[in-house]
Write a protein that binds this DNA or RNA. Structure first.
Length: 754
DNA sequence: ACACCAATCGTTTTT
DNA sequence: CGATTGGTGT
């Protein structure tokens, strides 16, 4: 009699669930029941193998995935066997580090610096070192540092290998950056992983404690792990040999955050005894969508050889549409959604619009408002990134960890209290000289037993007084920590710091900002109720690591607007992907990059989007995009979609001819007429040109968008136009692989054609 | 020290 | 086109 846990699983899924006591690699194609396998495997371990839930550790990449898995497990298991640890890498590491901090001289109340904090620290260091070079921005420095850290390259090694002036400077910043974090008792996201790795490496008794506790380690979205995360996974599972990893190389889309696709691609080389399971049956999408996805991904070189299949029906063809510009593209999308919904075919909750960059949501939003369509934008303006929230959190951090200089500098003069740049630069350099934090400098100055001579610093009387008051204020706040609840504490800070008055007088959107603060206070209230450890430090950690809770609400029928990156792991009956243009998807940076793997990643990103769709897929692009109305070429990815599976969606005669020929030149002509559509062509809605589109700007003779013929190059289209004195410089995209040429209007003898 | 205005710049994805 | 920086005047 087969275990109930295995019922309803296909053979591969069963194999994955039943493989215990061996390294396991599960290649989980999109829609192949990955989460089902993970949750059933956990149930199998507990019920069939009598393994204690406490010995099971599941590591995920995002909070969303962690909480979803937790829910699925508790649905599958009864609550009496709760105790399985499901956590993100980062919060798991933070937990370990808090617990073990005293072992290696890390203060238990360490602060976690997010991206913004890191950046402001780097900016400060760049200023201090007085270095200014073009193309070396604080952002690029930070990204170099983070890249090094996620490969476990320390600053001294980085320095030794520096091959040029810029790298040497980067190394110097890296060194200072690390020193600052250290002084501030702060860890960045990379440190959470890195310090855990070093802790495990340097303290065998610590790592064996965790190895002993977690005998069964399972990692989800393994294609998104970086070198350090992989190293930690190995450390944890070294004793037991039970490392199970699940992922899909084709959905590796986070290399910019230093995820390394080779972790999954060469897992089997690392663990030759590993069982490899290939989940290749797709339960999600129609055949047409699945085939489109496969055609899309197949040009990639870095991939696992996997041929997906499905029992699902052929379904409807893919709809490829083109709008004249961003406005019109949005109009098409939203009016089509309006149609689908009013015909009763789908509800808003069934539909998602996906895009490459967040800024694309704006045009869509406007049309939603116009049509009165309810929508939700996933994770655009993050709650904890808002100014007023960051400020109040900075107060809390400073109270929790006085050495946190980034937070101190953030709030020391917010609201303005007469502590200006001059004063701060004196304090900063004094802190550098004394190798201490700024709080420490202030303590020295005001404690009387100072080794620092106040007179020598050159601070004004007013500044000294203001600094004294600030220090007193923070000390007062600290006094409340043990006496008041978390929400009360925030309330007190909000009012007594003068922040409330400040935003009341300052900003016209006081209402909104005040509501945000209320929400923060509410969140703190929930946190206190739900967590046994409701210390300030624990709250701040959850704020940094958990971030926005339940961004995506499934209650209420709303259209979902989401970036392609964030769409991973989700599915919708109807998916629109907007902006399929070269420069947008693939993004311009990947096209210009000398590293071809970046282009492969863009392709995977598109693949992720396509495979979210269950029934209907629309691929949209704009003929002109951007604020300068530059013309964009169709995405090169469109050329890899079989034409027989596509219906084109156009909406006005003139524009059809204009754009369609153009698309043809990009798309694979051979396949175009091979076989006619095998499908009933769905009702493509009449597009009503209800809103006039932007008039193209007139130039001397030609304008962007004009179709032209050239004696030698043949037919082309104007994609760029620069007015010169008595003439114009034209950028023309020609058909038949000739490509883009720059021409002088008077010389080129172009003829306008229709 | 601070507020306001102008100019510039640089355009991705986020635990 | 938007946000951030820089300079000015109070």
């Amino acid at each position: 009699m087969e275990s109930a846990i295995l019922q309803g699983l296909n053979p591969q899924q069963k194999k994955a669930v039943q493989t215990v006591d061996l390294p396991l690699l599960v290649i989980a194609g999109p829609g192949s029941g990955k989460t089902k396998v993970i949750t059933h495997r956990i149930a199998y371990l507990i019920y069939e193998k009598n393994i204690s839930p406490f010995e099971i550790l599941g590591l995920t990449f995002t909070n969303k995935a962690a909480s979803e898995m937790n829910e699925r497990i508790s649905g599958l298991l009864d609550n009496s066997v709760a105790g399985v640890t499901i956590s993100t890498f980062h919060s798991f590491c933070a937990m370990v580090l808090r617990r073990e901090s005293e072992k290696f001289g890390l203060k238990q109340n360490f602060t976690i610096y997010d991206d913004q904090d890191q950046l402001s620290l780097v900016k400060k260091l760049v200023k201090q070192l007085d270095f200014d070079v073009d193309n070396v921005t604080p952002r690029s420095l930070l990204s170099q540092i983070s890249k090094a850290k996620s490969k476990m390259v320390g600053w001294s090694t980085y320095q030794e290998n520096a091959g040029n002036y810029i790298q040497e400077f980067t190394a110097k910043i890296y060194e200072e950056y690390e020193a600052s974090l250290n002084l501030s008792s702060a860890l960045d996201f990379d440190d959470l992983l890195l310090k855990t790795y070093h802790l495990f490496k340097d303290y065998p008794e610590v790592v064996s404690k965790y190895q002993d506790r977690f005998k069964y380690v399972m990692i989800d979205e393994f294609q998104d792990t970086n070198i350090t995360q992989y190293a930690i996974s190995k450390q944890l599972s070294l004793a037991s040999g039970n490392l199970a990893v699940v992922g899909d190389p084709n959905q590796s889309i986070y290399s910019w955050r230093n995820a390394d696709i080779h972790n999954i691609l060469s897992f089997h080389d690392d663990f030759p005894t590993a069982t490899v399971v290939n989940l290749d049956q797709n339960y999600r999408s129609t055949q047409t969508i699945l085939e489109t996805a496969q055609n899309l991904i197949s040009p990639n070189t870095e991939k696992f050889d996997q041929k997906l299949w499905t029992d699902n029906s052929k379904g409807q063809p893919i709809v490829i549409g083109e709008g004249y510009n961003e406005k019109e593209e949005s109009e098409m999308i939203i009016s089509e959604i309006n149609n689908l919904v009013s015909k009763g075919e789908y509800s808003l909750g069934d539909i998602a619009i996906m895009y490459r960059v967040n800024s694309q949501s704006r045009a869509l939003e406007e049309k939603c408002i116009k049509y009165g369509i309810k929508y939700q934008i996933v994770g655009s303006l993050k709650f904890y990134q808002r100014l007023e929230i960051k400020d109040l959190i900075a107060f809390l951090r400073l109270i929790n960890n006085p050495d946190d200089d980034v937070s101190l500098l953030r709030v020391i003069n917010v609201p303005p209290r007469g502590i200006g740049q001059k004063t701060l630069s004196i304090l900063s350099s004094c802190a550098v000289d004394n190798k201490s934090s700024i709080s420490n400098v202030l303590d020295q100055i005001f404690s009387g037993e100072s080794t620092i001579e106040i007179k020598d610093l050159g601070l004004t009387k007013a500044a000294i007084k203001n600094l004294f008051n600030f220090r007193e204020m923070i000390a007062d706040f600290k006094g409340y920590v043990s006496k008041r609840s978390l929400p009360e504490l925030i309330e007190i800070i909000f009012e007594q710091s003068g922040y409330k008055n400040h935003i009341m007088n300052e900003s016209e959107n006081f209402q909104e900002r005040n509501e945000n603060i209320r929400e923060l206070i509410n969140t703190a209230g929930y946190f206190s109720k739900e967590n046994t450890n409701d210390s300030l430090s624990a709250f701040l950690e959850s704020v940094s690591l958990v971030g926005d809770t339940d961004n995506l609400s499934y209650e209420g029928q709303k259209l979902t607007l989401i970036t392609l990156h964030q769409s991973k792991g989700l599915e919708f009956p109807v998916v629109f992907i907007s902006g399929l243009e070269d420069g947008m998807l693939p993004h311009i940076r990947s096209i210009e990059s000398e590293n071809p793997s970046e282009l492969e990643e863009e392709r995977r990103l598109c693949y992720v989007g396509v495979t979210r769709a269950k029934e209907k897929l629309y691929l949209l692009r704009s003929f002109r995009r951007g604020f300068r109305g530059e013309s964009s070429l169709p995405s090169r990815f469109l050329a890899d979609i079989t034409r027989s599976q596509v219906v084109s969606w156009n909406f006005s005669e003139e524009k059809v001819t204009q754009s369609n020929n153009y698309v043809d030149y990009q798309l694979n002509q051979d396949e175009y007429f091979d076989e006619g559509p095998n499908y009933d062509i769905p009702d493509i809605p009449e597009y009503k040109d209800s809103e006039p589109v932007d008039e193209p700007v007139e130039f001397n003779q030609f304008k962007v968008g004009d179709k032209v013929a050239h004696k030698i190059f043949g037919d082309g289209i104007i994609i760029g136009c620069k007015a010169l004195d008595q003439d114009q410089e034209l950028q023309v995209a020609f058909k038949d692989g000739i490509g883009i040429k720059k021409l002088l209007g008077s010389f080129a003898k172009l003829e306008e054609i229709n």
